[in-house]
């Protein structure tokens, strides 16, 4: 299991997609952050949502569906090792990637851009975990349903942009049609952004978006487990 984790970690580092999921949110942060206000509570939550969304909707499903398509899970099931270990290692590594992307954003925002960082850690960690769980669950469902790596990639990208729009990551929700903005609060990335903004404002996150994320995490991952195929 340790060796599996080490090898999978090396493969992740060699994957150009992993670098992109670190750099794209950072790029957005730096471009928009040059004019950041000291008390800003909007930009960093958006950048964090983009980062976690990229990993959950794009990296995770593409990797897993490719592994199934190439018969790697099947090949593993002919050895004494269990292929479910590979899934567990992948989910953990992608979680590390999401953490790294968020850590990088916070470090650059805090050290270089002089952005405001929340002082209370626990609500931020809770929001991160719930949001990541919700978006990873969607990624797992994509991996379960997509026939191969390329289509998983396509579905991920196809889902990513409407979800990012609904979540208010592309346009401030105040400028969106009211009904669209309201729907957006019930999407995983929208709920993540809302909770993170509460965290940045220094308060305790509203239970509603937290509940929305928990519900996605639970329901969608059950569906993913139900539909997952090993080959």
């Amino acid at each position: 299991m340790t060796k599996l984790a080490v090898v999978e970690f090396k493969l992740l580092v060699r994957e150009p997609g992993a670098v992109f999921s670190l750099l794209i949110p950072l790029f957005i942060l730096v471009v928009f952050g040059s004019s950041i206000q000291p008390g800003d509570t909007v930009l960093l939550p958006i950048a964090l949502a983009i980062a976690v969304g990229l990993v959950g909707l794009y990296m995770l499903p593409t990797t897993l569906a490719t592994y199934r398509e190439r018969g790697i899970l099947r090949r593993m099931s002919t050895t004494p090792a269990r292929p479910v270990n590979l899934l567990v290692v992948q989910v953990l590594l992608q979680l590390v990637l999401a953490l790294a992307a968020c850590g990088l954003l916070l470090a650059v925002a805090g050290a270089v851009l002089g952005a405001h960082l929340p002082t209370r850690v626990l609500p931020g960690v809770l929001t991160f975990l719930l949001g990541t769980a919700a978006m990873f669950a969607i990624g797992l469902l994509i991996a379960a349903l997509a026939p191969n790596g390329r289509s998983a990639n396509g579905i991920g990208v196809l889902l990513y942009f409407p979800l990012a729009y609904l979540a208010g990551l592309m346009q401030p929700p105040s400028q969106m049609p009211a009904i669209v903005a309201a729907v957006g609060e019930y999407t995983p990335m929208g709920a993540f952004r809302l909770s993170m903004q509460d965290v940045w404002a220094g308060g305790v996150p509203d239970p509603l978006p937290l509940g929305v994320m928990a519900a996605y995490a639970l329901v969608v991952s059950v569906a993913a487990a139900r539909f997952f195929r090993w080959e």
Partner: peptide
């Protein structure tokens, strides 16, 4: 059956040996 594109020959053998 294939292996991941980026796995090195020795890594694949070392990994499967560990199973």
């Amino acid at each position: 059956t294939q292996l991941p594109e980026n796995i090195k020959v020795w890594e694949a053998l070392d990994l499967y040996a560990s199973f």
